[in-house]
Amino acid sequence: MSTDAVEEARKRLTAAAEDLDTDGIAGLVLEYAQRSGVAPFWAQVCVPLLAALPGRDGTGIAVEHALSEGVRVGLDVHGRVPRRPYPPDGVLLAGAEQETHCLGLHALAAALREQGRGCLLLGPALPWVALAGAVYRTRPHTVVVWSQTPVTGRAYRLVRFSRDFPSVRVRAAGPGWIEPLPAPLDRFTSLIAAARAC
């Protein structure tokens, strides 16, 4: 995205968030994602905008929630084809157990759909036993587990999970994975890298 396009997108999304206009935000997300692609839009607009949100008072929290919800809805609609079945050997995305934030996974799912790749997003706070059950049922080639905070990004849980499924590529995503991950596990550090690797 050009500098002017980035600045314009940030201003328009900020104004919509301050108005608590989640539908307007979703529409803007669709517009810019279709125009520029999900990965550039996410990296250049969404991530800096979410990081620069106002303070944690009541108004600031409402603005943050409006922005997050609008972005989530826009990303979830982008590139979606109704009734397209989950393909065998696809990508399974889930938030780590007790992890309530996984907006980055919505961005990854949208980027994968944009590439014509099949994925299944199971949302936040998926217990490890439920994730294991989903892997048995869907047989993905890659599982991406999102953690936003170190409390939910426990490396030993990911290691144990990957040992239970040696034929599945298990990857960490999000800033919560701060402990070292042994090979062959690794952590995606950007949406572009994650979309390419999946």
Rank of each mutant, 00 (worst) to 15 (best):
S2G: 10
V6D: 01
V6N: 11
E7Y: 01
A9Y: 04
A9M: 09
R10P: 14
K11R: 13
K11I: 10
R12Y: 07
L13F: 08
T14V: 14
A15F: 12
A16N: 05
A17V: 05
E18I: 03
D19V: 08
D19L: 10
T22L: 12
D23W: 12
D23V: 04
G24V: 08
I25K: 07
I25Y: 08
A26W: 04
L28F: 07
L30N: 08
L30E: 09
R35P: 02
R35F: 02
S36E: 02
G37A: 14
A39S: 15
P40Y: 13
W42K: 10
C46A: 12
C46P: 11
L49S: 06
L50D: 14
A52V: 01
A52N: 14
A52G: 12
G55K: 09
D57S: 07
D57P: 07
G58Q: 05
G60K: 08
I61S: 08
I61Y: 06
A62G: 08
A62F: 07
V63W: 11
E64C: 15
L67E: 13
V71I: 15
R72N: 11
G74E: 08
D76C: 10
V77K: 13
V77H: 05
H78C: 09
G79L: 03
R83S: 10
P85E: 15
Y86K: 00
P87D: 04
P88E: 15
L92D: 00
A94C: 05
G95V: 01
E97P: 07
E99H: 09
E99I: 06
T100Q: 14
H101N: 10
H101D: 14
L103D: 12
H106Y: 05
A111D: 00
L112Q: 00
Q115Y: 09
C119F: 00
P124W: 04
A125E: 09
A125C: 04
L126V: 14
A130I: 05
L131P: 09
A132C: 09
A134K: 11
R137W: 02
P140H: 02
V144A: 00
S147H: 03
P150R: 04
V151N: 13
G153N: 14
G153E: 13
R154T: 08
R154C: 13
Y156P: 05
R157G: 03
L158K: 02
L158Y: 05
L158S: 14
F161W: 03
F165T: 03
P166T: 11
P166Q: 09
A173I: 00
G176D: 12
I178R: 07
E179N: 13
E179R: 15
P180V: 01
P180H: 06
L181E: 05
L181C: 09
P184Y: 04
R187Y: 04
T189W: 09
S190T: 13
L191S: 12
L191H: 01
L191Y: 03
R196Q: 15
A197P: 12
C198A: 06
